[in-house]
Design a protein around this nucleic acid. Sequence first.
DNA 1: AATGAATGAGCATTCATTCAT
DNA 2: GATGAATGAATGCTCATTCAT
Lengths: 206, 206, 206, 206
Amino acid sequence: MDFNEKQIQILKVAEKLFAEIGFDGTSVRHIAKEADVNVAMISYYFGSKEKLLEALLLYRVADFKMELETVMVQNLPHVEKLDALVSLMVNRIHRNRRTHKIINYEYTNTCRQIDFDAYVEQKKDSLGIIEAFVKDGQNKGVFKTDVHTKLLGATVIGTYFQVYNNKPFYKKLLGLDSDEAFENYMLTSLTQHIQQTIKSLLLNEK
Amino acid sequence: MDFNEKQIQILKVAEKLFAEIGFDGTSVRHIAKEADVNVAMISYYFGSKEKLLEALLLYRVADFKMELETVMVQNLPHVEKLDALVSLMVNRIHRNRRTHKIINYEYTNTCRQIDFDAYVEQKKDSLGIIEAFVKDGQNKGVFKTDVHTKLLGATVIGTYFQVYNNKPFYKKLLGLDSDEAFENYMLTSLTQHIQQTIKSLLLNEK
Amino acid sequence: MDFNEKQIQILKVAEKLFAEIGFDGTSVRHIAKEADVNVAMISYYFGSKEKLLEALLLYRVADFKMELETVMVQNLPHVEKLDALVSLMVNRIHRNRRTHKIINYEYTNTCRQIDFDAYVEQKKDSLGIIEAFVKDGQNKGVFKTDVHTKLLGATVIGTYFQVYNNKPFYKKLLGLDSDEAFENYMLTSLTQHIQQTIKSLLLNEK
Amino acid sequence: MDFNEKQIQILKVAEKLFAEIGFDGTSVRHIAKEADVNVAMISYYFGSKEKLLEALLLYRVADFKMELETVMVQNLPHVEKLDALVSLMVNRIHRNRRTHKIINYEYTNTCRQIDFDAYVEQKKDSLGIIEAFVKDGQNKGVFKTDVHTKLLGATVIGTYFQVYNNKPFYKKLLGLDSDEAFENYMLTSLTQHIQQTIKSLLLNEK
DNA sequence: AATGAATGAGCATTCATTCAT
DNA sequence: GATGAATGAATGCTCATTCAT
C-alpha cells in the first residue's frame, strides 16, 4: 500500500491504459514506455501484470472509501443529506471512474486470477451505510418503505456508467462538443438527474 | 446478415467468450475449439477477429430492434404503457446482455477499428421512441415535465448492467444461491425496481 | 503442351505475377483472382503450384526455341549474320523476359523441386548453334580465335538482364521517363550495345 | 551499421538463405534455427523480416564500396588500369554475390517495402567513377568514343551473374566438376573474358 | 468438369516473463 | 536495486491443397 514514486507513476499509466484499451489490450511494454520505465521493472516491482492490476485496485480502493460518515454525522434534513450522499457518490466514482471501469470489465471474468476482495468489502461497506441511512429515514417516516433499498446504489452508479461508457453517443445526443462540456455535464445535469431519481424513489410528494 | 449454421455457431461461441473474458482475452483458437471448427474457418468466414465482432454486432443488432412500436400502439393508459416499456427494455437487454456487455466494453476503445454505426443508430431510434412517448405523456399532463428525458434510458439500462456486471457481489448481497435465482431476480425484482424508478420520476403522486 | 483457354489464361497471369513478385511471393489465390478463376482450379488443372511453374516453363520454352537456323541458313556475310543473331536473341529474351527472369530466380534454388530439363536442353541447343557459327567464322578467318566462345551467350543475355533487373535505376541513369521509353531503349540502344560488344570480341579491326 | 556478434551471425545466415531460397522462401524460423538463435530474437534485433533485409543491405553495401579510387590513382597505362578495374569489380561482386543476387531479385519487386537507396547511391557512385575514367581515356585518344559508356557496367556485372545464376548449367557446359573448380573459373577465365570484352569495346586495334 | 467449403501446417510477430549482471 | 538481453509460448492470420458435390 506504500508505493514509491516510480511505482505510482506506473500505476497511473496502467490505470489510464487499462481503462482506455482494456487489461488484455494493454501490454506491459506499452505501460513501461508510457511510464518511461524499463519493461522488466513492472515484473520486478509488481510480480506480474495481474498483480499490477491488484496493486492498482489496492491503491485506488483506499480512495474509494467514501467519507459517507462525514455526510452522515452532519445535522442535515434527510432530503438534503440524500442529495449530498448522491453527489458524493457520483463525485467519487467520477474521480476513480477509470479504475471502476476496469473493475466493471474484469470483475466477472472468471479466467482472471485477480483478488477483488478489497473492492467487494468496500462496496459492501458503502452500500451498508446507505442502507442504514435509508432505513433510518424510513423509520422516521421521511422515506418511503416500498423500495428496493439494496438496488439504490446500482441505480446511482449504473446510470453514471451507462453514460460514461457511451460517451461518444451521449456527447452527440446531448449536443456536447468537447470533453470538457461532457465532463461538466456529468457533474451537474447527470448528477442532478440521479439525485432526482433517488429522491423520487424515496420521498413522498408533498 | 444471412449467416449459415456454422457461422451462427461461431457467432454464438464468440459472443459468449467475448462477454466472459473480453475481446482481447479471447483467442480465435479458443473460439474455434469451443465452436468445434477449424481455426482457419474464422478468418475464412469473417475475414478477421475484428470483423467477426462486427458480424456479431450486425447479427445481434437486428435483434435489438425492440418492438417498442408494438407497445406504443396498444390502447393502454400511460402508466401501464410505461411499465410495459421498461419491462420490454429489460427483457431485450437481458436477452442480448452478452453483446451489450461487449459493446459497453469496446465502444469507447478508440484503438479498435470496429464499426458501431448500426448499434448507435438502433440506440438512437429506441431512445427517440421513448422520448416521444414521454413527451406525449407530458403534453397530456400525465407525466411530470421537470425530468431529464434523454437520460431515462441510461437509468434503465445502467441499473440493469450495474447489477449484471457485479453478479457475484449481488448474488451474495441479495442471498441468491444459484444462477437461476439470479436470473429470475433480474427479470422480476430488478425489473420491478427499474419500473418503480422510472414511474417515480415521471408520475405525480395521487 | 496443349493447354485450353482457361489454362493459358492462368499461365499468363502466373508468369506476370511470378516475375513481378516472385514464385514464393505469389499466392495461388492471387493468381486465381487475377485470372478470374476458382482457386481450386489451379490445383485441379496443374496439380500444384510447383507444377504450374513447370507447365509455364514448358509452355514458354517452346517459344524460346529460337529460329536461329532461319538466320543461319541465310546467305549473309558473317558480320551481318552476327548482328542478326544478337538481335534475334535479345528480341526473344525480351519477349519471354518474364519467364526468363523466373528461371534466373528459381533455377539455382535447390529446395525447389522444379524440372528445368527442357530449359537446359533448349539453352544447350541455342548455345550449340551459336558456338558452331562462331567456330565456322573462326575457321574462315572472319572471327578471332582467342575468345571464350561458350561465354558469349552469357554476355548477351547477362547484359540484357542486368539492365532489365535494375529497371528503375537505369531509367533514371539513362533519363528514360516512361516504361515505353525504357522498353524502346532495350530494343534499340541496348541491343546495339550488345551487338557492338559481341562484334568487338569477334571481329578484327579493319 | 554497428552490429553485435549475434546480429552478424543472423545477418550471415540470412544472406545465405535469402540468396539460396529467396526472401519469401526463407522463413525467420529457418534463419533462427540455422543461426542457432531464438525465433523471437530476429524481431527483437531487427524489428521485422523486411528490416532484417534492410539491415543486411546496409551491412553489405558498406562493403560494396569499391576501392576504385585506389586503382584510379595508380600511375598505370589506361589499358592496364582497365583490366585492374574489371578485375576489381568482378572480385567485389563475387565476394558479395549473395547480397547482390538478393538485390537483383528484390529490387524490382514493387510490393516489397525495402529501402534500396544506399544500394542505388553506391551503384551510381561506382558507375560514375568508371564513366569518368572512360571519358578521360577517350579524351586522351586511348579509348574509342563510339561506345555506350553507361552500359559498360551492366556488361561486366551482367555477364558475371548470368553465369553465376546458371551455375549448374555452366558447370556442365564448361566441364567443371566441383564448386571449387567453378569458383576458380569465375575468378580466372570468366574474369579474363569480361576484361577482354571491355577492352575490345574500348581499345583500338593496333 | 468444375467448385465452394473446409483444413492442417506454417507464417511473422508479440507477449509476459526471466535472468545474468 | 535495477536492467538490457533473451526466450518459449501464444497470437491472428495466410498458405497450398483437398474433397464432397
